[in-house]
Design a protein around this nucleic acid. Sequence first.
DNA 1: CGCGTGATTGAAACCCTTCAAGTTTAGTGG
DNA 2: CCACTAAACTTGAAGGGTTTCAATCACGCG
Lengths: 172, 172
Amino acid sequence: MDFETEVKSIKVKRGEVLQGAGDISKKAFRVESGCLKSYVLDSSGKEHIIQFAPENWLISDMASFFNQEPSKIFIEAIEDSSLQVFSHDAYSDLEKLNDRFILEMNHKLRNSLIASNKRLIALLCATAEQRYIEFTQTYPMLVQRLPLKLIASYIGITPEYLSEIRRKLAGK
Amino acid sequence: MDFETEVKSIKVKRGEVLQGAGDISKKAFRVESGCLKSYVLDSSGKEHIIQFAPENWLISDMASFFNQEPSKIFIEAIEDSSLQVFSHDAYSDLEKLNDRFILEMNHKLRNSLIASNKRLIALLCATAEQRYIEFTQTYPMLVQRLPLKLIASYIGITPEYLSEIRRKLAGK
DNA sequence: CGCGTGATTGAAACCCTTCAAGTTTAGTGG
DNA sequence: CCACTAAACTTGAAGGGTTTCAATCACGCG
């Protein structure tokens, strides 16, 4: 069993849901082209975006994928996309057989954790306006590419308020 | 060079700062007894707690430790504590020499990432009251042990407002 | 005892949300 | 390629959650 046999490529259309809350995640995705999002729904049904995944990003519900417990996260295509799909079994095998794979995964996990903590700090420390500015600096491509609505959800505010922030910033 | 030679134990007093913002982190800590916190200061100088580390927890500024870049994070003892200290060099050596160590670290990183994402989701989705209730359920020991002020900082609100939440919850 | 730190309370102010309406933009089928 | 419709964006007013500030109270420790 080698790498090739375990990883397949698929194409999905915008709006397609690859994983729903309640599922036990059996798959992780690497985006070849297009863009995905992962999100949760709060108690009032509002969507909160956890992650965007444009080209070359990995996306999965780690809690569900690694611990094989029911997911609370949705993964959905926000553009027509082409994806590599990693099965949980393939991941386990690679982890057992391939030292270099583990070390690489180690570095990816680290970087994800650093990024996650950075976002946490922003939510704790920064105002909505500061978070928006930081987002535009960190992901300039995504600002062009994504609807305002999704960016608002990512930085933790309403689209209406982001609209107001933009107007204010434009006026400077 | 083996594990023992690289890890030493130290004792620190409450209030002692083990790492300051601006430092390049050369150390990670495992708490044997006592409790540490890590935190950042926002632009107005207010403290926001990233992590508590009671017995058996690891604490470090991962961004600085792994990437050897200047830290934005403070690490400070909130009780008299006894610590194991891991140097960055020791970590690098262990990573090169010891497969089992990498795999273990892999699992720890995963769990940290899952926890970090969980907290992110709480900040995005839940009200302050819900976050406080979740905190009391997740860390019942810490609720006893820590001053309200620190818990407020951790869940991202002011001590005054947490006080109000507590009164309201007690009234039920 | 008295001092300092932490907890509580209340009032005013602020950030952000909600709701509702109107305008623009983008996707789709004829 | 245009027309139609749905979706995205903007705007404003009202309201809620949270902060700020200031004052008071409780308490552990020297």
